[in-house]
Simulated scan of single mutants.
Amino acid sequence: MRAPSEYEDVGRFLAWAARPKETPARNEELHRLVRRYYEDSDFAAAVDGVFAGAGLDVSVDERDGIIATARTHSPLRLTVADVSKRAPQAHRALLGAVILAVARTVYPDPAMIDDPDRIAVFTTQSVVDTLDRVAQSLAENSADDSDIDDDLIEAWRRWSDLSPARPNARRRSTGDRPGIVVRVCKILVEAGFLTAKGDADGGVWAARPRFRYAVGALCDDSELFRLVNGLAGGSGNASEEDTA
């Protein structure tokens, strides 16, 4: 059998980067490509060049596989607008805030983003609590002479307008706060960033390693994560570490 050429394998490498749920342990070809990236410097340079040309940063790990994150200018970048385009109009302003709150809950200390061995487990309710604290903080600081952006205040007002969870509700509604958090977490599961672990406290979720890379990229090119981190500070127990 003819061995794959370098060009073919670069294409396969890019294709596997678009399958965020796959790992080398689960697929022989992906394992081969990751091994080649580590062992063949010319191949690694070719991969890095193609990804850089597409506006992508690539991280290759023997355990986690190929993790690509798009730079701000990349045409392959997935924006919050892309994620929210199917959401009801009233919810679109909230989805970005919920994603940031998930990041804040998973990484309450920014130094945790640099820890490759940390696997954080969190609940839907912990994200709701984070957003509630942010909304309350903004409400307390939104006086007429405040320098907080009006659009930002309006976004958090939309969160406050959502109803809390209905007691003993068997089905989660996107019309309440836990419901919209679950909706966002399911989107992140489908994208390969989270894993669903259970139903306690509205849902239990584990952050996958590629979520750490994505949050790192977010911190590099956005002030929003820093803003949420500051407003929701002082809640060091918002996230749990999975020691299993």
Rank of each mutant, 00 (worst) to 15 (best):
Y37A: 06
S137R: 11
A103V: 00
T72Q: 09
V127D: 07
V47Y: 01
P116R: 07
A101L: 11
Q89R: 14
S142C: 09
F122P: 07
R86C: 09
A143D: 15
A103D: 14
Q89M: 09
I67Y: 01
E140L: 11
A70D: 04
T130K: 05
F43G: 01
V47L: 06
T69F: 05
S126D: 14
R92N: 12
P116K: 05
V58T: 02
A54I: 11
R77T: 08
V98T: 10
I148R: 02
T123A: 07
L76A: 14
Y107Q: 09
M112K: 07
V121M: 12
T124Q: 01
A52W: 00
E140R: 13
A90V: 13
P110G: 02
R104N: 10
R36K: 14
D145Y: 10
G55H: 01
A135M: 01
I66A: 04
Y38N: 06
V102F: 08
S126E: 15
A81I: 09
F122E: 08
Q125C: 01
R133H: 10
L78W: 03
T123R: 08
P108S: 02
Q125R: 07
D149P: 04
L76S: 07
V134R: 03
I67F: 02
P116L: 04
I66N: 02
V127Q: 02
I67K: 05
T124V: 14
D117K: 13
L78K: 10
R86V: 06
S142K: 03
A111F: 04
V128E: 13
D114V: 08
D132W: 00
V80I: 13
G53D: 11
D149W: 05
D147T: 13
V121Y: 00
L131I: 11
P75E: 05
I113H: 08
V80C: 00
L138R: 14
T69H: 03
G53Q: 12
L138V: 14
S59F: 12
I148C: 04
D109G: 02
V102M: 10
D40G: 01
V102S: 00
N141T: 10
P75T: 05
F43P: 02
E140H: 04
G96Q: 14
D132L: 07
F122Y: 04
A143G: 15
F51P: 01
R71E: 11
R86Y: 10
M112I: 10
Q136I: 08
P88E: 15
V127A: 06
A46H: 06
L33G: 03
D42E: 11
F51M: 13
R36C: 01
F122A: 03
